[in-house]
Design a protein around this nucleic acid. Structure first.
Length: 1153
RNA sequence: GCCCGGGUGGUGGAACCGGUAGACACGAGGGACUUAAAAUCCCUUGGCCCGCAAGGGCCGUGCGGGUUCAAGUCCCGCCCCGGGCACCA
């Protein structure tokens, strides 16, 4: 009876489905084991041969563990939100849900064809509302949580509210508020907190929530109306369509993953993950230890004010730098309007003295008349997210006794004189309080909100912290890992986007600096990267004070400093840092030696084991000691602190896309409020087109009635917190007006958030949903989570090292903090499967024109005609012969049915092609689909072959040339059961002709050696070697003509994880009615493997020359004697006595001559 | 530049803790069965050299050194390939 793989596999697919063989329920009586694959995005192209590699490996482990008595959870689902479906929808108008459904159905067919043991009753799809309801729910938990640095965990906002009401907010609470940009929150007393109105409270809380709105730099493409990822931008234009792309600050939902930086780093040590993934995460988190150092400075507001320092310094000296900064960047756009206005109100334009870009408390205002306490603001055109902040500013400024008047951009540009007249009018009606202001800086400096600590330490500011420059002085804060080189500082460099650049630029340099900043700002990071060799920068004209020496240090702007890292400013030590050195060399700035033995003429000395040579208290110290000493000194004089810095940024969580989870937030007066749990899931609305609106809003803004109407219950806050802010606090021109379809009925409907979540949202927690996929009342039942616990084995590609795998850990830690899951790492063991590359066929092609039409000649491989080029040729139209690849006329005819190859013809009857290994991709015509392989050889052969190809972790080219070997193996295995003529069928089943005779010693040895090797190899996930061992077993048993049940039956079970269909069939034929998957794993025993003799390799000086067999029990001494007595050995010794004889029992004998 | 992997026959790859390098498979060559094909089975297959043969010798795991009775494996210095990060202060 022959091995008919097609019949067998079809039969068992159906049997497994009908019997529910792979359904699994929690069974507390058995140990659990959770095997998870990274779920796929169901793309339109279907599975290719590379996808199943990891799935097969994990399926083998899952099946093996089940045989070993574990309660195994092995689910599969789809990461079904995502860009390709949306792109396709934009092109074809087809709803992404429809294409996703179709693609998933195709995946399912393909996955089933490979015989995976997934429990499909547990399938999840991230785009299913019953799933994303809980993604949204978790988002709301993030929104409703803050990070308590002291307890080092996330806690509910309600606990923060309690704390604020009792003890206010000290700097400590705010110490983890890193974020993409730091915004000043400051502290407040309990009394102040209680006095804040709802709106202010909400604004303050934004700074603590783990999901929050913030400004982030994005690649904005106005033509596409969307934000592009870095790799979608090439040379400043979009990869698709070539539209211009600009760097832009946008209000974005972000997740405060930075709060978890240290824990994410520490947690890695305990994980059984590959070192490369752990290392990639460590790099990504990028912890560096060093110091934060302040360089005091005197701002250059205008030349005539230099040298004076009285009342115009209205800034809160602690924060000015940071905060206003933000405002400054925001205000960049309307620079033209501001400028126009400045021209007409400067000097005596209004009759009162107006200052420009002035800091008051924690803000920069556009213009101010200090004596009359009037602030004049010009609003930009697009910042709607800014309005809430403007409102907050206004409130704060009013508190300080300023009146704020605002003008729109257009207003100013149209008629600046009209605006000036309005200002004059207002000024005329205000009392002059000049006496109160000029000459006394105290009042305006003292903010009620203390500045929060610079580092993770958190402390209340002491007077000394204000810097050596004295009170009322601003400072530039830098982060350095080498405070020991402070004496070598010869200048400071600010990133072009640094907040203080505008303020520090002296008038005589303004044009030059602004031009530079503008240029740098519009260059993408990639462009900056491309010009690593070019040094560029510009001097601001200002100086800062060295904290130790008090020397004037010039402040430069240079784009080698990145705005997003550290403080966006560096202290330049050309003697100790090569980038600083190049900058200094280029601009002729002083280079001061900081270490002994440095040749600073040639390059900077970056050695970390050097000795400091700077004059002063660091002289003679080794670098590590000098660092410690320098930090002590900085802390003593209040010019800095030791600080840990992380490279990790907060994660952007909003996408201007349609096909993603809607963010369950609505806006009331521009303040985000969470939807109540009862309103979940917030279902993705229908839209007429999947494109941004004409005004550039995300696709969801197209939806009709995309609003939320809170239930009418008086006094109850919409998000369960506080009362709605009063309308008067809304910023001018704000479009906080609710869209209200139900306006007539008097019910207020509030606009919903229009961005959607990124692809990684659902995948950050899906492993929990598999545990209890149908639960309607909770993301997963507590009992289910307690039972299944962490993922024991997680298999997926290493390309997710710093994306998915980091967020996955972050969300787990967060859920752990809230007491929702008992563990704080999602996966104990991670294995990265390698990529299966495609074997491309490169044809040597020459384009030619015939009768005005383009034709392509396929040339001989070595024909190097001018103009010839290489082009991918479809791999499945190629024959392999004599170790080379060929196409002939017949093959070419088939290829011409592909439109891209219609006009190709061969230059010779047979053309050779060049094989090239590269990524498998549709466009390279090298995709191999598993369906064809399965049709020809069967799923079991595919499974075995993919495993046999090499270690799972390794990338390798797909080459079907070896597949025959595994197919032959299966047939040989089958034939062990049907040797001879076979046995006539009884009861409709062809009984194999296995005998019940007792196996021989040799047969038992083969069996047990195989069981041992296979068992150990599965545990090590070394599947290629287990397949090899099966082959050896079959070859040896074939030679022994073994057809004995006692040998073959255990082998069927052992093979079942690898080749489940054939195993089931043979198992049934052996007379079992239950599935082979229920059979206990066969144990090997050492007794059958005992050898009684060993064939020693006898080597001379390490070179093996002959073999001699000795009983295993023979002691080394006797072995040595017998070896030396051997005539052949004697002959080689030529009568001389060996210098030494080494006998390693059961290994080797080495004779040293 | 930095960090992680990895370089073994014509090919994919084996090799425990330093102990017979090349398991297993593909491909290639030769043979058996067969009208033929398919399928199956057997033999050879790292390179070079000596020998009619049996057999024997030398070289060989990216390169150069070293440790050791013994090195693919350990140490030092390089080269190359793959992946990740990057004017990261």
């Amino acid at each position: 009876m022959a091995y008919e793989h097609q019949d067998i596999e079809a039969k068992w697919r159906e049997q497994w489905r009908a019997r529910g063989t792979y359904r699994v329920a929690p069974d507390p009586s058995r140990p659990k084991y959770y095997v998870l694959d990274m779920f796929p995005y169901p793309s339109g192209a279907g599975l290719h041969v590379g996808h199943p590699l990891g799935y097969i490996a994990s399926d083998i482990v899952a099946r093996y563990k089940r045989h070993c008595g574990f309660n195994v959870l092995h689910p599969m689902g789809y990461d079904s939100f995502g860009l390709p479906a949306e792109q396709y929808a934009i092109q074809t108008g087809q709803h992404p849900a429809k294409t996703t459904e179709e693609n998933a159905a195709r995946y399912r067919l393909q996955l089933d064809a490979i015989g995976f043991s997934f429990d499909w009753d547990r399938e999840v799809r991230t785009s299913d509302p019953s799933f994303y309801k809980w993604t949204q729910w978790i988002f709301l938990q993030l929104f409703d949580s803050w990070y308590d640095a002291k307890a080092d965990k996330a806690r509910p906002i309600s606990e923060l509210l309690e704390r604020f009401a009792i003890q206010g907010c000290s700097g400590q609470d705010a110490s983890v508020l890193t974020g993409d940009i730091e915004q000043y929150v400051g502290g407040f007393t309990a009394a102040e907190w209680n006095a804040f109105d709802e709106r202010t409270k909400q604004l303050v809380l934004q700074h603590f929530r783990l999901a929050y709105l913030s400004d982030a730099w994005v690649n904005w493409c106005p033509a596409l109306g969307t934000v592009l990822a870095n790799d979608e931008v090439k040379d400043g234009v979009s990869e698709r369509g070539g539209h211009p792309v600009e760097r832009k600050r946008m209000k974005q939902w972000s997740l405060r993953i930075t709060a978890y930086a240290q824990r994410l780093l520490d947690g890695l040590d305990g994980l059984d993950w590959s070192e490369s993934i752990k290392e990639a995460q460590r790099n990504w988190i990028g912890r560096s230890e060093g110091a934060s150092v302040k360089f005091a400075l005197t701002p250059n507001l205008s030349p005539e004010e230099r040298g004076t320092r009285p009342g115009y310094l209205t800034a809160d000296p602690e924060v000015a730098g940071k905060l206003m900064a933000h405002a400054n960047t925001m205000r960049k756009n309307p620079a033209e309007a501001e400028d126009r206005l400045w021209q007409v109100i400067r000097g005596a334009g209004t009759g009162d003295k107006i200052r420009r870009q002035h800091i008051i408390d924690r803000f920069i205002v556009d213009f101010v008349c200090l004596p009359k306490r009037l602030v004049i603001e010009v609003d930009g055109d697009i910042h709607d997210h800014q309005k809430q902040e403007d409102a907050a500013r206004t409130a704060r400024l009013q508190e300080l006794g300023f009146e704020v008047i605002r003008f729109a951009n257009e207003e100013v540009i149209q008629d600046p004189y009209k605006v000036r007249d309005r200002i004059k009018e207002v000024l005329a009606n205000r009392r002059n309080v000049a006496e109160d202001v000029e000459g006394s800086d105290g009042e305006w400096h003292s903010s009620p909100l203390p500045r929060r600590g610079a580092g993770g330490k958190g402390h209340s500011p002491s007077p000394s912290e204000r810097g050596p420059g004295g009170e009322g002085t601003l400072s530039i804060e830098v982060f350095t890992t080498r405070p020991d080189t402070l004496f070598g500082v010869s200048f400071l460099t600010l990133a072009p986007e640094h907040e203080l650049v505008g303020m520090l630029t002296t008038e005589d340099r303004r044009a030059e600096v602004e031009a530079y900043v503008e240029k740098a700002r519009n260059r993408s990071e990639r462009e900056r990267q491309a010009e690593v060799d070019k040094v560029s920068g510009v001097f601001t004209g200002s100086y800062a004070k060295h904290p130790f020496t008090g020397a004037d240090v010039p402040v430069w702007v240079g784009d080698y400093v990145l705005g997003g890292y550290g403080t966006g400013a560096v202290m330049a030590v050309p003697g100790g840092d090569q980038r600083d050195w190049r900058f200094a060399k280029h601009f002729g700035l002083p280079i001061i030696a900081v270490t002994e033995g440095a040749d600073i003429e040639k390059e900077a000395d970056e050695r970390k084991d050097a000795t400091i040579c700077s004059e002063g208290f660091l002289k003679g110290l080794k670098v590590p000691q000098a660092i410690t000493r320098a930090i002590e000194e900085l802390e003593r004089i209040g010019a800095g602190t030791g600080k840990v810095n992380f490279r990790l940024r907060d994660a952007a969580f909003g996408r201007q896309r349609y096909w993603g989870e809607p963010i369950p937030i609505y806006y009331k007066d521009d303040i985000p409020y969470p939807l109540p749990e009862s309103a979940l899931p917030l279902v993705l609305p229908e839209v007429d087109k999947f494109l941004p609106t004409e005004s550039g809003e995300p696709p969801l803004a197209r939806a009709k009635n995309w609003t939320y109407t809170p239930p009418l219950s008086p006094g109850e806050g919409p998000g369960g917190e506080g009362t709605p802010p009063s309308p008067s606090e809304r910023g001018p021109g704000g479009e906080g007006t609710p869209l209200s379809p139900g306006e007539g009925s008097g019910v207020r409907a509030y606009p919903l958030e229009t961005t959607t979540m990124p692809g990684w949202a659902g995948s950050s927690w899906y492993f929990l949903r598999y545990m209890d996929p149908k639960n309607a009342g909770r993301f997963a039942a507590k009992e289910a989570i307690d039972h299944w616990g962490q993922v024991d084995l997680y298999v997926g590609g290493s390309e997710h090292a710093t994306g998915h795998l980091l967020y996955f850990r972050f969300w787990t830690k967060f859920l752990h903090d809230l007491g929702l899951v008992p563990f704080d790492e999602p996966a104990k063991k991670l294995v990265n499967q390698g990529m299966v590359q495609g074997m491309s066929m490169m044809a040597n092609v020459l384009a030619s024109s015939r009768n005005g039409e383009e034709h392509y000649r396929l040339l001989a491989l070595n024909n190097k005609v001018e103009g010839a080029f290489e082009r991918n040729y479809p791999v499945d139209h190629v024959t392999f012969r004599d170790g080379r690849y060929w196409i002939n006329e017949e093959g070419a005819n088939r290829t011409r049915s592909i439109s891209a190859f219609r006009d190709y013809y061969l230059d010779a009857p047979v053309i050779e092609l060049k094989p090239v290994v590269e990524k498998m991709s549709k466009s390279k015509y090298n995709v191999v689909n598993p369906d064809d392989i399965i049709a020809k050889y069967g799923a079991d052969t595919l499974r075995l072959y993919e495993m046999f190809l090499g270690p799972v972790e390794q990338s390798k080219p797909w080459d079907t040339n070896g597949i025959e070997g595994t197919f032959r193996f299966l047939r040989k295995f089958w034939n062990l059961f049907y040797s001879g003529d076979g046995v006539a069928s009884t009861h409709g089943v062809d009984r194999p002709n296995v005998s019940d005779d007792a196996p021989t010693k040799a047969e038992l040895k083969v069996l047990h050696a195989t069981l041992k090797k296979v068992t150990e190899d599965i545990e090590k996930m070394s599947f290629n070697t287990s397949v090899a061992q099966f082959m050896i077993a079959v070859n040896e048993l074939g030679a022994l003509k073994c057809g004995k049940r006692a040998v073959l039956e255990p082998l069927v079970i052992a093979l079942a994880p690898f080749a489940p269909h054939i195993a089931e069939e043979l198992w049934e034929k052996l007379g079992h009615s239950a599935s082979v998957t229920t059979a206990p794993w066969p144990q090997w025993s050492a007794e059958h493997l005992v050898e009684d003799s060993f064939s020693y390799p006898i080597s001379f000086n390490g070179k093996t020359r002959l073999q001699l067999e000795f009983p295993i029990a023979l002691d080394p001494k006797s072995v040595e004697e017998q070896v030396l007595a051997n005539p052949e050995v004697q002959a080689r010794l030529e009568g001389k006595a060996p210098k030494k004889v080494i006998v390693v029992p059961k290994r080797i004998v080495n004779i040293v001559l």
